[in-house]
Structure formats: C-alpha cells, structure tokens
Amino acid sequence: MKITGNAMMHQSLKNLVPMKKDKTEVENNNADPEMRRQLEELQRMVAEEQKYQKRLEADQIAKKIARGESVTHEERQQLQGVDSEKLAKAEQANMQRRALSAQLENATTKEQANAILLTGKASATKMIEKGEKEFGELLLAAIDKAEEDYRKQKKSSQHIIPIDGKLIKVSDPKPQSIDIRL
C-alpha cells in the first residue's frame, strides 16, 4: 500500500501497523472498538488526502492549459475526470490569453501595453469578486503568462549599440540605413 500525504499522517499509519497483531483481529467484531475507530479515522484521512492531491494536480494542469503550456493527453483526461468544468474554464482562459497577447503585439507604446494588462487583470479580479474564483485565478495566471511573454519579446528585440561613445537602445536590430556624416 502506497501512502501519500503529509509526514504526520504517514507516521501515524506506520505506528499503527506494529500495534495490530492480525488484520482479521481488527476486522473481527471482538476487536477493540477504540482501535477500530482509530483505524477508520486514519483510513478516512488517507482518502481525504488522496482527494486533495487529485484536486491539486487538477489545479496545476488547469493552470498549464490557461498559460498555453503543453499538456499530455493523460493530463487532459485526468482533469476531465476530476473536474470537466475546470477544463472548460482553463481553455477559455487560454483563449483570452491569446487574444490579450495579440493586443499586446499591436500595442505601440508601453502605456498602451500597460493599459491592456491592467484592464485584463481588473476583469479577472472582478470575476473573483463576483464569485467565479476558479475562473478568475486561471485568467490571472493566463494574463501573467501573456505579460511575461510580452516582456521577454520586447526585451529581446531591443539592442544596445555604441554610437559616438554613447550606448543607445535600438528597437530594431536591423536598421534600414544609417547615415553618418563625417
């Protein structure tokens, strides 16, 4: 039997095993009622811990989908089995991330980009306030990923070149023509 969960639960189950002499004795009606109650409580705790672990894994998979990261067919099926509604919300958040990324690509100034990001984050926060906490959190994860991608893309497209002993930022690494007159 594989035991997952926190260390305290793991240790409790390990300590319980040496106490019982025979499995049939515990299952027997003549077994100590207190011991049987403790065993049932520990089994309930293990079952709850397993459910919690599945929900955590489902949350991680949903966030990967919302951020546009690749997920395996098995991960998608696992999320579908645990919470099909969460899968739909993650896919919707991913679609909104793509739309936001397209808007950011079309932004011509930093101010426009910041306004787009701020609007997206505000709408995600409103979703959380309206009671759509799960979707709002997925949307925030998607927006954060779009912002990260935008910042990386902008940072990589800027180059610093020396001109007349000064370092100058150039957004386009391949200028069409440079006219330097001596």
Rank of each mutant, 00 (worst) to 15 (best):
M1A: 12
G5K: 05
A7Q: 14
M8A: 13
M9Q: 08
M9F: 10
S12F: 05
M19C: 00
M19A: 07
K20V: 10
K21C: 00
K21S: 12
V26N: 02
N28G: 10
N30R: 10
D32I: 06
P33W: 12
R36H: 05
Q38V: 11
L39D: 06
L39Y: 04
E40C: 02
L42Q: 06
L42H: 02
V46S: 07
A47L: 10
E48N: 08
Y52H: 15
E57A: 07
I61L: 05
I65S: 01
I65F: 08
A66M: 14
A66P: 07
E69V: 01
T72S: 15
Q77Y: 01
Q78I: 03
L79K: 03
S84W: 03
E85C: 00
E85D: 07
E85M: 06
L87H: 03
A88V: 08
A88D: 11
K89R: 09
E91H: 08
Q92H: 12
Q96G: 00
R97Q: 12
R97V: 05
Q103D: 11
N106L: 13
A107R: 11
A115N: 12
T119A: 13
S123R: 12
S123Q: 14
A124I: 07
E134C: 08
F135L: 15
L138H: 07
L140R: 12
L140Q: 11
L140I: 13
A141S: 15
A142C: 14
I143S: 03
D144R: 02
E148R: 09
Y150V: 05
K155L: 11
S157I: 11
Q158Y: 13
Q158E: 11
P162W: 00
K166A: 06
I168C: 03
S171D: 14
S171Q: 14
P175S: 01
Q176L: 15
I178C: 08
I178N: 05
I178R: 04
